[in-house]
Design a protein around this nucleic acid. Structure first.
Length: 815
RNA sequence: GCCCGGGUGGCGGAACUGGAAGACGCAGUCGGUUUAAGCCCGACGACCCGCGAGGGUGUGUGGGUUCGAGUCCCACCCCGGGCACCA
């Protein structure tokens, strides 16, 4: 044994060949079957970590597998380069975000090459390049033209630490998802995308895509569609109609009071002149200053103040008292609600606190009739609707309201419009100017891109740092030519990543965002791979962008990601790796020590790729040993047998067993790759095959059979360990494994003429025998009865039943 | 509170459609190789009783269906995640 497995020599050699020959580049010529495999683009901050190694190892395995099953594979790469971390770094160090971002991008480029990821580098870009964000701005203008991007003043979430507004999706439990600071509510004029127009389609089209069920559920919950009715309550003095939304029109007769949000614009007007006027002012001012996490605390006792007015319940003409309370949200429904304390927990709590009437109108007809009862039942105390079950009553009462003009069926959503303005520097400029004469004016397309100017001070002071770039801010109105000011907010970085996968189809195009033909050919992404943390934000926004751009005639992409795979985290000692915990394992030292093939294979062998898995140094050693064993036996057999021996025509004994194992492995790995994504068991199957190769070699197996079996192992492991596999295959056959079609299992080798018959008595295994595959059920049963250890348990007892499972077992039931 | 996942050896995990529980890997024990350690090659390995043949127990807990349950059904416990004053 002269040579030894040396990944530091093997890996650069094959990488250089693939780079030189541009092996992984693809054209846009429609030809054969296409397959677009995409991992979520990295956010370039510092060095790549284990999560990156894992996600790109998965994506590369899929890309390689699809290429070798005859697909034309697009597998591109880019960088989500705008964002807060680079800007915060700039605030601390004064270094321009572009410099630190580009340095990080260089680290990713180096990593991807050293990992041997098969990327079409001709399509690479960063979202911070004007050549890219020019088209992000163009998309903004298209949405603006059609009213899908608009500006309005609203109560928005403000993070005092990051000094910027946040989208609803970026607020977790009342805190900034990035820095954890409690968010405040501010009344500001901001840019929004009208994603709520697409709520129903975003919901319905989930049916058409193959995504993990829990991701679909999260999106459904986020959109939060509720069906119900809008019901009008009239306030006699001052004579205003107040519509409310309810999902339970069947409980309308149980409404005993009426509550408005503190933000409701009519609250002060209603209270004016009543004895409660002062109290209402105090309460509202207090409520508006409360932080989001205090106000949304459900355990808190309900508070509120009477408005001193009443509204009339349209179904029974009753005048019920009005209140203002902070448990009512201005953003949902109409900012006012009818309270049915008998059948709603929140209303019940409020009624208890204020001694208000609780009137049962739904009877559950069972033993437990505690209030509040929030489920369905049969109507009582509801006039002509008494006796109807809830479902029927909802329909009947809505119909009754419609005929009297006092209400109608209605749908409400939890989803809000996407707030995209950010008062930060390192982002895509919004291509808008403000003119005193002409108002809001879009920058003409011919003037794109609006290039992000350099500034001296990146620190936000409640306004965008861009406001300080006076030469840039002061411009002329595209409409009247007069003096005008540029928009100084930048876009949320989720805008940049909502269309990058379309740009990959035609990344070098400077005439348009994309060529429709190229997009028609490649889209949708056949397999998208990324972290579960994007289940709502990115994946919902990208879907919205595709639908909107399709409606505007620029695309024909209803859903961008036909299939989605979400991967689990690699943890260390059961915890997420983080600098503060000091438990970070960086992929690069692993690659240095064992090679990229080992690092990649281990990241997949560690466990099911969609689950979290804990890093083990010893586990890496095991995968390294396996690849070394494969390479060693390959190199040894290739060196011993220079004659390129063929597979024996009529194999028997150890040769036959080995060939069977090889074909078994082909079938197993193919099945695991195809749609199960069971990479851990695929790798285990190749390990078994390699172990069998060693056994067979020791048993003096035929060189041709060995060559076939080892070559098969190399071919099957190629998607995970491409360098090692390419080297072994080259030594054995002098061929390029990536140009070989994916192997096919020969059924002749999968079938066996005998099998191990399991003999059970009363369900317990008592013996095992070699049986003929073609044996009849009677023959198998007879065989089982003769087994020595079966007889020991059956003799002297009565066999009451025989269960025969052909090819598997016989179970004798005795008494 | 509601909605999803998940509980299998010392550890990570495997088990496809109800049919041999523990593949594969790690750690461990033993043997070979070696001047020696390591590497490497091989063997053994759920637990309990037994020298052994063999027997018993065993997939979070309790019940059920079945010739047969890790897998299906009912109830419960624990862990992880999502949503949560959304009318």
């Amino acid at each position: 044994m002269s040579e030894r497995y040396d990944p530091s020599e093997i890996e650069p050699r094959w990488q250089a060949l693939w780079e030189r020959e541009r092996t992984w580049e693809v054209t846009n010529e429609p030809e054969g079957d296409k397959y677009y495999v995409l991992e979520m683009l990295p956010y370039p901050s510092g060095e790549p970590h284990m999560g990156h190694l894992k996600v790109y190892s998965i994506g590369d395995a899929v890309a390689h597998y699809r290429r070798r099953t005859g697909h034309h594979v697009l597998h591109p790469m880019g960088y989500d380069a705008f964002g807060l971390p680079a800007e915060n770094h700039a605030i601390n160090t004064g270094e321009h975000p572009r410099i630190s971002t580009d340095r990080s991008i260089a680290a990713f480029q180096t990593a991807f090459r050293r990992w041997g990821i098969s990327i079409d580098w001709s399509r690479e870009f960063g979202t911070h390049e004007p050549r890219y964000y020019r088209w992000t701005q163009w998309i903004f203008l298209k949405l603006f033209e059609h009213g899908l991007a608009y500006r309005k003043e609203a109560a928005v979430n403000w993070c005092p630490n990051d000094a910027t507004v946040l989208a609803n999706e970026q607020v977790i439990d009342g805190r900034c998802e990035r820095c954890g600071t409690p968010v405040e509510v501010r009344q500001l004029e901001q840019w929004f995308f009208r994603i709520t127009d697409y709520a129903d389609r975003l919901l319905e089209d989930l049916e058409t895509i193959e995504w993990p069920a829990h991701v679909k559920t999260m999106q459904r919950n986020w959109i939060g569609r509720s069906e119900g009715a809008e019901v009008v309550f009239r306030c006699e003095q001052p004579g205003i109609d107040y519509p409310v939304f309810t999902t339970r029109p069947d409980t309308l007769f149980g409404a005993t009071f009426f509550v408005m949000a503190p933000e409701h614009p009519d609250v002060f007007r209603l209270a004016a002149g009543t004895e409660h006027e002062e109290e209402v002012h105090r309460y509202v001012n207090h409520a508006l200053n409360e932080s989001a996490d205090v106000r949304s605390d459900t355990d808190r006792r309900k508070t509120g103040v009477p408005l001193g007015r009443t509204v009339v319940n349209p179904v029974n003409g009753e005048a019920i008292p009005m209140f203002v309370s902070d448990y009512v949200l201005m953003e949902y429904g109409t900012g006012a609600l009818m309270a049915v304390p008998a059948h709603d927990e929140r209303d019940y709590d409020f009624a208890q606190a204020f001694g208000l009437e609780i009137r049962r109108v739904i009877d559950r007809g069972g033993e437990n009739d505690d209030l509040p009862h929030t489920g369905d039942g049969v109507l009582v105390n509801s006039g002509e609707f008494d006796g109807l079950p809830s479902e029927a009553a909802k329909r009947e009462i809505v119909r009754w309201l419609e005929t009297r003009g006092a209400g109608h069926a209605s749908v409400n959503y939890r989803l809000r419009d996407w707030l995209l303005s950010r008062q930060r520097y390192w982002g895509c400029p919004i291509p808008i100017v403000y003119c005193d004469e002409c108002g809001i004016q879009p920058v003409p397309e011919s003037e794109l891109p609006v290039v992000l100017p350099d500034v001296k001070d990146y620190a936000p002071q409640g306004r965008s740092p861009l406001a300080a770039a006076e030469a840039w801010v002061n411009t002329t109105c595209p409409s009247c030519g007069g003096a005008a000011l540029r928009e100084t907010d930048t876009m949320d970085t989720f805008v940049d990543s909502s269309w990058y996968f379309v740009r990959y189809c035609d990344a070098l195009n400077d005439e348009a965002a994309w060529d429709p033909e190229a997009v028609r050919w490649w889209m949708p992404v056949d397999q998208y791979i990324g972290g579960i943390e994007h289940a709502i934000l990115h994946l919902l926004y990208a879907r919205f962008f595709m639908k909107a751009l399709t409606d505007l005639g620029h695309l024909e992409v209803n859903e961008p990601f036909a299939r989605l795979f979400t991967l689990g985290m690699i943890t260390r000692d059961g915890a997420k790796m983080s600098k503060s915990r000091g438990n970070v394992i960086s992929p690069m030292p692993i690659v240095d020590r064992y090679g990229a093939d080992t690092a990649r294979s281990y990241s997949l062998f560690i466990g099911p790729p969609d689950q979290d898995a804990d890093w083990s140094d010893d586990g890496v050693e095991g995968v390294y040993r396996f690849l070394r064993r494969l390479w060693q036996i390959g190199a040894d057999v290739a060196a011993e047998d220079s004659g390129f021996a063929d597979v024996p025509a009529a194999p028997e004994g150890a040769d036959l067993e080995l060939l069977r194992k090889a074909h078994w492995a082909i079938a197993k790995v193919t099945n695991d790759m195809e749609d199960r994504f069971a990479f851990n068991t695929a790798i285990a199957a190749v390990m078994e095959l390699v172990n069998s190769c060693y056994d067979a070699r020791r048993a003096g197996a035929d060189p041709g059979a060995l060559r076939f079996a080892i070559g098969t192992a190399a071919s099957l492991i190629f998607p995970f360990a491409p360098h090692c596999a390419a080297d072994v295959y080259d030594r054995l056959f002098g061929d390029r494994v990536w140009e070989e079609p994916w192997p096919e299992a020969d059924p002749a080798f999968l079938a066996r003429d005998t099998f191990q018959l399991v003999c059970q008595v009363n369900g317990k295994v008592r013996d095992r025998l070699e049986a003929d595959s073609g044996a009849s059920q009677e023959e198998l049963a007879a065989l089982c009865r003769q087994a020595p250890n079966v007889r020991a348990h059956v003799d002297g007892r009565e066999v009451v039943k025989e269960v025969v499972v052909p090819g598997k077992l016989v179970n004798l039931v005795v008494r």
